[in-house]
């Protein structure tokens, strides 16, 4: 039991990088980027192939990052320059990447079991593993926070918040969009590279459903920890990813459920996380409106128009 929780925390930390990527597109750019399913496997594929060819795991992970950047840039360009609907641009890249990933690997999957990876020297004991991952993920989070507070980062955030405004202030929103999607998929690919190194293989289907998992992490994190500022929001995303993995680990211990039910459970978590706040908000607003109307009715018409 405890072992599976520790394992879930470690996995959650690795997937947190992917969730941070999803946060950049979904929350900051307000761009529903489905490239993620493809670029996650691209990261895994590049890292696994480079490691089997004898490159250092560091270089392999860096290679994965660059591959993700490129994949994201393609989606961004399709959307901004090709004027393709954002969802469709992501889907097109995701499908294209499926073939590209098999090309990269030369076959549908590559094993790196028993090879030296970034994670193999620290994999045991699990406490150390979690600690190292935690520090690494927090460093990435802090770097991202810092970036989002630079002049370029502000422009990126404004692109998702009010693109008309930031254009009128002299930012090319096409460029900021491409940068954002690119960076997002770079992080996703690094996450894929680490998952491949942790699991000992890369597979062309390893990214299937990844976007929903990323979204689940973002939503769970925001629901529990809030998103008042960027710094809190990115922390929430990391925590959300861990909580998601723990929930899944616990769900899989229920006898009724099988491992293949995982994606359905994920979809359910996202659906619940999306629907519940909406219903609650509607209900709250209705009761507030009712209360205010009653209050206004109770006040005699003496100070009409007094407020500005």
């Amino acid at each position: 039991m405890l072992d599976s929780i520790y394992g879930a925390i470690a996995l959650g930390l690795i997937y947190a990088l992917m969730a941070l990527g999803v946060y950049i597109t979904f929350r900051i750019l307000d761009f529903p980027d489905l490239t993620v399913d493809g670029s996650f496997a691209t990261g895994g594929a590049i890292a696994a192939v480079m490691i089997t060819q004898g490159y250092s795991p560091w270089l392999a992970t860096l290679g994965a990052f660059v591959g993700g950047l490129a994949a994201g840039a393609c989606t961004g360009l399709l959307h901004t320059k090709g004027k393709i609907n954002g969802l469709l641009a992501g889907i097109l890249m995701m499908i294209a990447l499926y073939s590209i990933n098999i090309r990269i690997m030369g076959k549908p999957n590559v094993s790196i079991v028993n090879m030296d990876t970034l994670l193999s020297p620290i994999a045991k004991p699990i406490g150390l593993f979690i600690l190292v991952l935690l520090v690494a993920v927090l460093i990435v989070k802090l770097l991202l926070d810092a970036f989002l507070h630079t002049d370029l980062g502000l422009a990126l955030r404004a692109t998702g918040d009010n693109s008309k405004m930031i254009r009128s202030l002299g930012s090319n929103t096409d460029t900021t969009t491409v940068i954002g999607i690119s960076l997002s998929n770079g992080l996703v690919a690094v996450s894929g590279a680490l998952i491949a190194q942790q699991g000992g293989f890369a597979d062309s289907t390893m990214g299937v459903g990844m976007i929903v998992i990323g979204l689940a992490s973002v939503i769970i994190g925001e629901a529990i920890f809030g998103a008042r500022t960027v710094i809190i929001a990115t922390l929430a995303v990391v925590m959300g990813s861990i909580v998601y993995r723990i929930v899944i680990a616990l769900a899989l211990r229920v006898e009724l459920l099988e491992a293949s039910d995982l994606k359905m459970i994920t979809a359910l978590i996202v659906i619940i996380a999306l629907v519940v706040p909406t219903v609650r908000r509607t209900y709250k607003q209705r009761s507030l409106a009712r209360k205010r109307s009653a209050e206004l009715l109770a006040i005699p018409a003496m100070d009409k128009g007094g407020k500005s």
Partner: peptide
């Protein structure tokens, strides 16, 4: 102006 990596 050009927007770079200096603090906003």
């Amino acid at each position: 102006q050009k927007r770079g990596f200096s603090l906003g």
